[in-house]
Simulated scan of single mutants.
Amino acid sequence: MPRRRRTSPNVNHLNQKPPELFEREVDDIMFTETDAKWVYYPHTDALVIKMKIGMVNVHRASVDTGSSADVLTYDAYKKLGLLDKDLTSTGGHLYWFTGNSIGVKRTIRIPVTLEEEPYAATQVAMFTIVDQPCAYNVIVSRPLLRAMRMVTPIHHMTVKFPTPTG
């Protein structure tokens, strides 16, 4: 009798395509020197953007292409008017900027909208909530960058992303 191979339900297979942000063909994303007209060189600045979390505009969102967790500070979470009962308990550790380990106890899935009028795109993000002081309200990292197909060239200090309208 042949052995059946057991598979885990959270294993991604190559034949499984991730859900599309939207159905239409995506245009090429290009950057020109005009996109960098407000950048003063040389720079080593952090890339900081504004985004809408739920229905609230949130400033001081840092884009961190080297991190693997989208982080929302507990202080910013409370200012969004969200309730603690909406948080999901979880376990694990997050290694902070200083190299210190922080115990993670809560997460939340919440819609995030990036917009530059008249274009906008929305995606649900899983945020890790940390009760730690931070210069930023949000740290956007690889999971949300990939889900929204965001392109982040450091030279231009901007992000571009496809939207349903272009």
Rank of each mutant, 00 (worst) to 15 (best):
T7C: 04
F97N: 07
Y136M: 05
I29S: 09
P118I: 12
M51C: 15
Q132M: 13
K52A: 03
F97V: 14
R6W: 07
A61E: 00
E117W: 12
D75G: 11
P18M: 01
P162S: 12
P2T: 06
L83N: 14
K17I: 14
S8H: 13
M1Y: 12
D35N: 14
L145S: 08
K37S: 14
P2G: 12
A61I: 00
R5V: 15
N15S: 13
T73C: 05
P164A: 13
L82K: 14
R106H: 15
I129N: 11
K52S: 04
D27E: 15
G91L: 06
R60S: 08
P118R: 13
D35K: 06
T165W: 12
L72R: 02
K79P: 04
L82D: 03
N12T: 11
A36L: 03
M30K: 14
F127C: 09
Q132D: 03
T65I: 06
R149I: 03
Y40I: 14
A46P: 03
N15M: 05
E115Y: 13
G91S: 11
S62N: 10
V140P: 00
D64G: 01
S101E: 15
T128I: 07
R60G: 00
N10I: 12
R146V: 04
V159H: 00
S67D: 01
T163E: 10
R106C: 03
R142E: 05
R60T: 04
I29W: 08
V140I: 15
D28W: 08
V48Y: 00
T32L: 07
E25C: 09
V11I: 12
G54T: 05
I139L: 15
F127S: 05
E23A: 14
P133F: 01
D86K: 10
R149Y: 15
Q16H: 09
T73L: 10
S89C: 10
M1I: 10
S8F: 07
Y119S: 06
F22G: 08
D27P: 13
R149C: 12
V58H: 01
R24C: 11
V138G: 01
M51P: 00
N57R: 09
R146M: 07
E117N: 11
L47M: 13
L145V: 07
D64P: 05
S101V: 07
K52I: 15
Y95G: 00
T65D: 03
M1F: 09
V39F: 01
H156V: 11
R146Q: 13
K17G: 05
N12C: 05
L80T: 05
Y41D: 04
P153W: 02
I29H: 09
T32V: 12
T73W: 04
D27A: 14
M157P: 00
L21Q: 04
P164T: 06
S62T: 04
A135C: 01
I110E: 11
A76M: 11
G92V: 02
M148V: 10
M148C: 06
E25V: 13
L72K: 02
L14N: 11
R24P: 01
T107P: 06
L83R: 12
R146H: 11
S62A: 12
I139V: 15
S8D: 13
Y119I: 00
H43P: 01
A76D: 04
E115N: 10
F31L: 08
G81L: 02
N10M: 02
V130L: 14
M148T: 13
M30T: 15
S8G: 02
